[in-house]
């Protein structure tokens, strides 16, 4: 059993990191909005899904005009991800403006239900458009990165197996890590990032500091949604086929990552995402070996939700819950 675990470890780490960074970026969208509004924006998974569809649309248009064959795949990819993230950024900002802002002072439950409503709305609008255009709500995109990469991890340690993956995995990993770094810089080192943290800590007082709170909230939604949309494109690049419901499970797992890291804590969401991605891949690779076939890889999803329940019971503030004690 141990031999199997060790042998699959390199592959588990590669796959787990890639999945983990995807969770991490989406988790940031949840955690940022929660930090600032104390709202769990359940529509965020659907923003991710919309990003995947917008990206696919752009990709299909580019390939139909012959653009794809004339430029390097990486350039096309950059164009797609930029367009999709700007579009989803505005989408998220618009949702806040139309659906959440009028309810700013309403009981939290009402806004929460609205968020769930928005997520259904987005699913069905996307499905409607997809079926109208293609006759099918499952859409496949031409793949951009297909080279196989063979990582000779067995040469490091003879017990290791080799890790095998498509070059798209590498693209996903690198782009997601870049997004995490840029976001961390934005939040901790820029003026608007500082305003965002101030509004999250004390909205009323922030307004006394000539900070336009509504504007900061809009920026927060834009950034969180743009990241979510860009991750949708990453998902599309990695799996090739998408449907209007991909945001649901992924969204809930990313939400779990945010809770695990301590909801409202951005670095916590990053760590939470990585942990859940790694655990899930570990479970997928080893669950049937460990349980002697009683549970197969299809039970991997249980891990994320078992973690959610365990965190809520034993450490509701998450791994990196508020570190500073507030003195009055």
């Amino acid at each position: 059993m141990l031999a199997h675990i060790i042998q699959t470890l390199p592959q588990v780490i590669v796959d787990g990191l890639t999945l983990g960074v995807v969770y991490a970026v989406v988790a940031i969208g949840y955690t940022m909005v929660y930090g600032i509004l104390e709202l769990i924006n359940f529509a965020h998974g659907e923003i991710f899904m919309s990003g995947a569809f917008i990206g696919t649309t752009v990709l299909l248009i580019l390939s139909s005009v012959g653009f794809l064959s004339s430029v390097p795949a990486i350039l096309a990819f950059i164009i797609i991800i930029v367009i999709a993230s700007i579009a989803t950024g505005f989408l998220g900002m618009g949702i806040e403006r139309v659906a959440y802002r009028p309810l700013r002072n309403a009981p939290k439950l009402i806004t929460l239900i609205t968020a769930i409503g928005v997520s259904f709305l987005l699913q069905d609008i996307v499905r409607f458009i997809a079926e109208l255009k293609t006759g099918n709500y499952i859409v496949s995109a031409p793949s951009l990165f297909n080279e196989k990469i063979h990582l000779k991890t067995s040469s490091i340690l003879p017990q290791f197996g080799d890790a095998l993956f498509k070059s798209s995995f590498l693209v996903v990993l690198i782009v997601a890590i870049i997004m995490l770094i840029v976001l961390d810089f934005f939040v901790n080192r820029t003026k608007w990032g500082m305003a965002m943290r101030a509004v999250a800590q004390d909205r009323e007082t922030a307004s006394l500091m000539s900070i336009n709170v509504n504007k900061v909230i809009s920026v927060t939604f834009f950034v969180g949604s743009a990241l979510g949309g860009a991750t949708g494109v990453l998902f599309m690049v990695q799996y090739g086929s998408i449907d209007p419901y991909i945001g649901f499970i992924l969204g809930i797992k990313a939400f779990t990552a945010a809770v695990l890291g301590g909801i409202g804590n951005i670095r916590g969401a990053m760590v939470g995402g990585l942990l859940i991605g790694l655990l899930e891949m570990f479970a997928a690779a080893n669950l049937s070996t460990i349980t002697h076939g009683a549970f197969g890889a299809e039970y991997k999803d249980i891990f994320a939700f078992a973690i959610l329940i365990a965190v809520l019971i034993f450490k509701p503030e998450g791994l990196f819950g508020k570190a500073v004690v507030e003195k009055v």
């Binding site: 500082m194 943290r197 101030a198 800590q201 004390d202 009323e204 007082t205 922030a206 508020k322 009055v328």
Partner: peptide, 9 residues
């Protein structure tokens, strides 16, 4: 009132 400084800044 209550100073309201930003505790985690």
């Amino acid at each position: 009132e209550g100073r309201r400084i930003f505790p985690r800044l």
